[in-house]
Design a protein around this nucleic acid. Structure first.
Lengths: 225, 225
DNA sequence: TAGATTGTTAATCGATTAACAATC
DNA sequence: TAGATTGTTAATCGATTAACAATC
């Protein structure tokens, strides 16, 4: 059964149906959330579907359609209230809470991630950073937190004690697979891979590989043609 | 006219038609390229559409379909030759050449990018790194190159002399818009934004904002449900 | 040969878009 | 009120998938 059918029937709200969102809807809602978070920082109170479209490159009709599936969040002639839309989308995505992440690799990239707001803004907290280099253990990392580099041997203990749901790999390509294996062993189900390595994991584990060069290739194609 | 029509007619090759690829096809081809590049590094000679599907999360039928639109690149019972597929896709995307990029910000993130192979593997070369901090100017950056931090005042000169096609922003959120403005002024049409700031540019300029947290939110949704 | 995997078809599903009445 | 923007429909287009003959 398509999840669009109830819509045709009238005002049935899908959020209550408890059905899983389609991959596409979940991905787009996440993007709206990021733009809304930034818009709020910039002091915007309301935002139109057209403005959201400009920033996300998603068609404005598509955005209104995505949102109207869950309720009437907007005001005609005005747009959407930024604060309330943020909390509605968080509710839909069920990601309102705090989620703990562990970072692997205390090189330039690891330090950049630890110092960034990019995860914190969305409820992700870096609660541990690991490095295999013994000389780095104990070194403080990040601007504001009390984070310091921990020994890689503590991985298992930290994952269970700190309730780690995501492991972020900021390690050299050669090390990526073995850290991923250890994370899987420790029970982590989501791995975010900033290395270029192709990482293999069991089917119940998700790996996201960051790919700035892919996006660049893509942008370049449309620039060249 | 849909560009699929010639396919139905027989063996017409689209690459020769010179039509622009659809957004989706271009994006997927770029992803295949990234996986192929890594597979090659790992010493693989051939790869099946199923293996590509495992790494890209694109359906294997879709992959075969995407590729067969441009020619018969595979061998039944064997798969695709990695080397030849890489060069075929590069041809299709017209990104076989070298493209120069300029990096802004010589903090942890800028240094991480400059030291990474991620751009180099796809023909992008970081030819300049800028910082507004005068004390950083002249400092060498990156492992293997002769790159050193340049003064931000040289932006215009470098863009024209070095034929910069992409500007990469690894600067604080507050600085992102003003660097983007200066890049637009200098004639750069592709901007890659690693800050969280929402950057506004004229319609003929493309901004890609990197969004690891968005991908995480998305992954988390499917983990939680 | 037997097994594997491509190339291709056909059917279905979701995304995209234009258009516009409703309404703030 | 007049202008703007949502919510929604309907039509079209591209993506997805299963299935399988072709063939390496």
């Amino acid at each position: 059964m398509s999840f669009h059918e109830p819509l045709n029937g009238g005002g049935v709200e899908l959020a209550e149906a408890g059905e899983r969102l389609s991959l596409g809807v979940a991905a787009r809602l996440s993007r709206y959330l990021q733009v809304l978070t930034q818009a709020k920082k910039m002091g915007k109170d309301t935002i139109s579907s057209q403005e959201l479209a400009d920033y996300t490159h998603v068609n404005s009709t598509q955005i209104r359609r995505d949102l109207s599936g869950f309720g009437k969040f907007g005001k005609r002639g005005v747009g959407y209230n930024v604060d309330s839309l943020v909390s509605q989308i968080r509710k839909i995505l069920r990601t309102s809470g705090q989620h703990n992440i562990a970072l692997f690799g205390a090189g330039h990239l690891g330090k950049a991630i630890a110092s960034s707001d990019i995860f914190a803004d969305h409820g992700f907290r870096v609660v541990a950073i690991f490095d295999t280099d013994a000389s780095k253990v104990g070194e403080p990392v990040g601007d504001k937190s009390d984070l310091s580099v921990r020994s890689y041997e503590d991985l298992d203990k930290v994952v269970s004690e700190e309730d780690i749901v995501v492991g972020v790999l900021a390690v050299p390509n050669e090390a990526a697979q073995s850290v991923a294996d250890d994370l899987v062993e420790a029970g982590v189900k989501i791995i975010f891979n900033y290395s270029e390595a192709l990482v293999q994991v069991p089917p119940d584990v998700t790996v996201h590989t960051s790919s700035p060069a892919v996006d660049l290739l893509y942008a370049l194609y449309f620039y060249l043609t």
